[in-house]
Design a protein around this nucleic acid. Structure first.
Lengths: 344, 344
DNA sequence: TCGGTTTCTGAAATCGGTTTCAGTATAGCA
DNA sequence: TGCTATACTGAAACCGATTTCAGAAACCGA
């Protein structure tokens, strides 16, 4: 059974395809009201809905956003995607999803091609910036035909970027630990080839140095975001600095690992060692003790990205050049048992 | 700058559009090898890649799968989506993603319409079965034009369904608790309008009754999957049955909440109370104590769904009727500290 | 050499919309 | 009443592919 087409609507309603199309396109300048009604009624009666393929073929628009994602098994990226979809569907876009398994895809060209062959109106690049997996950005061959918004990447002079202020978050954490009276504050970072990890480390260092405290490398252990690396990280720090009394673990999972090490060594948290994480994963209030952390609104991050992309698409369609921009989302410190030493 | 079309390739290579198309479609029956090469070279040289819109317009296929998802902020659904995308892209499909905010959408018709207007080749319905949010399945108006695979739903005589064997998993848990010597085994369920929750409860009851133990309602508290409902759930159970010595919390989050209540009441886990969860969320080994649970391979679940859908699509395209089928994925019990009473 | 296959290729129709351009009806005005 | 401006509407071209149908070339046995 063939689908109902605009031609059917035209025939049944007694008007031409052109008129039907004009009614459906909304911006109907010269359509008499009763004509409009008759056509809408016919559309309703026939249960007609237009073919997107035909529509984008002619109009070169598809009301589709391409999303390139990574690490969906983790909490942050899932929330971001959820936010992206939310805002996209609110504004009439549908999501074409492509996940990559390794952050350093070299098939960027092919990916962009695939997306452009489907006439996506814009692309959101939601892959963390790791090592030089953005090398292709500098290549002259990188000229996507549609606007691209990057998530979570270092400011670039000619790109649209939306990210959480990791540096600011780390400042909050470290200053908080200082305020609580910690004298010797260690750091378990993420992998240093991650931009986010470097930002958080920078925040830790700057906060310490700005009050004249030491931020030397012997107080730093590089983890890999995993719980076990947090567990081992704290062990290493303690062996180097038994006097450690404050710890900033750069994500909640590593903080959870550190809590385990502390428990095994009978270190009281927060009395002997105050611990703060980063991310505000679900249920961190139920850890023992409940975990202080930094909340980043990843859903809002996704929404923001779509909003920026929408703006860029409109500009693109009116042939304006892409206006580069970096939007930083401010995170929020959540103080819980694991770092509360003073009464407020 | 207009995109390069098949006409360009034809002109440059000196052959006709038809020939170029045949070469690109692969199943080129009657093409001389040197012709094929010349055309492929031209394609390469021009950087041509076909327009999906035009292609699907004519062929009524899009190499796109529609995915309707829910609750992406949670671990299970994210993994499933990841698995779906993995298998889809491996087999040449792209994902059109649509998330819904409430499981009981009544816009099913509109959703299907939207998907069909984009010529998806098949649909994966990855929304949990809650209350009667499948009522539309029985309506005569539900006749999608493409195959649909449902995730996580009760067996239906005329649908393709892929799900985890929740009943079997619950059997594993409860038998394990019995084997460990627990005499009084309580249950914190998920919301009873969830199919998965009912299945897990059924497993608990059957396991107990099959060995002649009591499975009355006074040993059951209905939670809502949240950590706090697990926390309160255990408190209620203990007030009714201080002799409680075994607990099956129907997901890991509620188990985590229960661990907190146990801690606050100085109940030793597992000595005084053995606890088992369900889901195998990340880092449950780091809870105190580490949590016994049931692992369900949600990534594989997603992959399976795509494979089944692929099969259904092929059958659909050769005009065969949809062969109903239910695939159950077997979960696996993971015994950790929270329920280990005997030495193995 | 000739008729009949078989192999290869191209012209043109088609998919289902949007948009241009031109034509007709109506209104407005002198 | 006549003439122009404006409001509607329709015929047809177009988007970029696939596919049918038929024609040309090459090959074959008689």
């Amino acid at each position: 059974m063939p689908r109902t087409t605009i031609a059917d609507v035209a025939r049944v309603s007694g008007f031409s395809q052109a008129t039907v199309s004009r009614v459906l396109m909304g911006q109907a300048k010269h359509i008499r009201e009763d004509t409009r009604q008759r056509i809408l009624d016919t559309v309703e009666a026939l249960g007609y809905h237009p073919s997107n393929a035909a529509r984008s073929l002619k109009s070169k628009r598809s009301c589709t956003l391409g999303v390139v994602g990574y690490g969906l098994e983790y909490y942050g990226p899932s929330c971001t995607l959820s936010g992206i979809e939310q805002e996209a569907s609110r504004t009439g876009y549908t999501i074409l999803l492509h996940l990559i398994r390794q952050p350093e895809t070299n098939d960027v060209a092919q990916l962009l091609q695939e997306m452009s062959s489907r006439y996506v109106d814009g692309i959101i690049w939601a892959v963390p910036e790791i090592a030089n997996n953005r090398a292709w950005l500098k290549e002259k061959s990188f000229k996507p035909s549609v606007p691209v918004v990057f998530l979570t990447m270092e400011t670039q002079p000619d790109q649209v970027i939306v990210a959480v202020d990791n540096y600011g978050g780390a400042l909050l954490v470290t200053r908080h630990l200082i305020t609580q009276g910690c004298q010797n504050i260690g750091l378990i970072t993420g992998p240093m080839d991650w931009w986010e990890a470097r930002e958080r480390k920078r925040g830790w260092r700057d906060a310490l140095e700005s009050v004249g405290m030491s931020a030397s490398e012997s107080w730093v252990v590089e983890g890999n975001w995993s719980t076990s690396s947090g567990e081992e990280g704290l062990a290493i720090l303690l062996s180097q600095h038994p006097e450690l009394d404050g710890l900033f673990a750069c994500n909640d999972r590593m903080a959870l690992g550190a809590l385990k090490t502390a428990r095994e060594r009978s270190l009281r948290v927060p009395e002997d060692l105050a611990v703060v994480g980063f991310d505000d994963m679900p249920d961190t209030t139920y850890y023992c003790p409940s975990l202080s952390t930094v909340r980043q609104d990843m859903i809002e991050l996704g929404r923001l990205a779509v909003r920026e992309l929408g703006r860029a698409i409109e500009e693109h369609q009116s042939d304006q050049p892409l206006a580069p921009k970096t939007v930083l989302l401010q995170p929020e410190l959540l103080v819980r048992e694991s770092s509360r030493l003073k009464r407020p």
